[in-house]
Amino acid sequence: MLPLYLLLFLMILGSLVAVHTRTLLSAVISLSLVGLVLCVTFLYLQTPDIAITQIIVEIVALVILIRAVATGKEVSDIKGKKEVFSLVAVIAFIVIFGYFAYQALTFIEFPKFGYPLMRVSQFYVEEGLKKTGSANLITSVVLGFRAYDTLGEVTVLFAAVLGTLVILRGVGRKK
């Protein structure tokens, strides 16, 4: 339990540095630190599949963000004028969010940490090997029981890649 708290505090520290540092490159590096600590946290929480996916995605995200940072000459932080309004908005958000989070964690039936609700996934755990033939239950859920979700994911992925290609295309249409 203690290593989990340490990892979460390291994530909070890394994200604070990513938000408050002045140069954009160090902000991107701190964000990547948060992602890698998140990968270690996933390993600690006994989810190796997510950890593998997270570390690959993290490296790709780091490369993409460094490409974006290298675009601009200006790397310093930009100071705004209407800081007061933003701070008031943030405090209001935090108060409302904290209130609802407190309500959800105390009064509504909410699973305690370490005791998951297994209403739907009990069926997956019992029948996964028999019905889909995959020893890894995550694979059987992604590709077997919830295959339509995966189809939707691939559609979104295709749309996003297509949008990226269209936006970054060098030659535009002639008028």
């Binding site: 997510i50 993409i64 998951p116 859920v141 995966t150 979104v156």
Partner: peptide, 20 residues
Amino acid sequence: VDPLPQALVLTAIVISIATL
């Protein structure tokens, strides 16, 4: 451990890199 959130988070991670 519960396999259902892991499967959905696997989907969400891949989508997040595309939107990024």
